[in-house]
Amino acid sequence: MSSQVIYSSSPAERRAAGRAQVAPWVWLAGPYALVLFLFLAIPLCNLVVLSLFRYSATSIWTPELTASNYARILDGFYIALTLRSLWIGAITTALCVVLGYPLAYFLARCSPRALSLGLFLLVLPLMVSTVIRAFGWIILLGREGAINSLLRALGIGEPLGMLYSEGSVIVALVQYVLPLMVLPLMAAIERIPLSLEEAAVNLGSSAATVFRRLIFPLSLPGLVSGILLSFTVSISVVVTPALLGGRKVRMFGNEIYDQVVTANNWPFASSLAVMMILLTFLAIALGLAAGARAGRRR
């Protein structure tokens, strides 16, 4: 009898009972897929189309195809802008790796109580709006800011021009994207049993060797996710470079914003946006390929 009860709830039995057949993924992933399609895929198509239209000072929608918007990106100014964005993203990501690995290791191995406090402190910056966080950095780094006041009080030379530099943007970005590096890394390290580390130590590994031969290769998938998240987020920020970078440190997002809001050149803004999306895809593809190669080696 009991086996019949089990069988009657199997998919085959339900099909026989004539109930509606819907594959599980349709109702599990379907709702979000629909939202993505309506509010991301369709607008993106619109963006691509718009990026191929000629700019007109009088109307946004001028159905006159041209490649001139893309040709304009090849101008030295925009090449420099692109390189600067990628550079800032790369430096930020590299700093996050250096700062994030020890932190992720600590959080993965600490007591549950320390972990909940640590996680709270880690994501705390994300709970403050980007604008307010940027103003915080202005107060700290400004010409009359906290750090310069302290230096003056200690009688140390000229005030430092820290604000409105690449440095100030990178510092603020590192603080912003660090959790995106630490969380996936931590999850990957947590899955490495402590006894593996002990086995490596027992075979003669110093702490540095344990990291190089064990922790690093085994947490590589988490590192790849962390790098992808940190890099894509940090090359596409707008507010942070706008408030902390001044006129000098403009990034991709700032130019798109200005083209839309100030210059009203939506077609060119669209082509910049498409370029940025393509660059991001390229970065993700490279990252995933590197991760897959490391995975195959395993």
């Binding site: 006894s195 593996l196 002990e198 086995a199 027992n202 003669g204 064990l214 290769p217 085994l218 395993r298």
Partner: peptide
Amino acid sequence: APHKRGVGLVFQNLTLFPH
């Protein structure tokens, strides 16, 4: 230090390096 003792240890659970 533990990594300089040169004493062999076989663990209870399976601790081969998976990679």
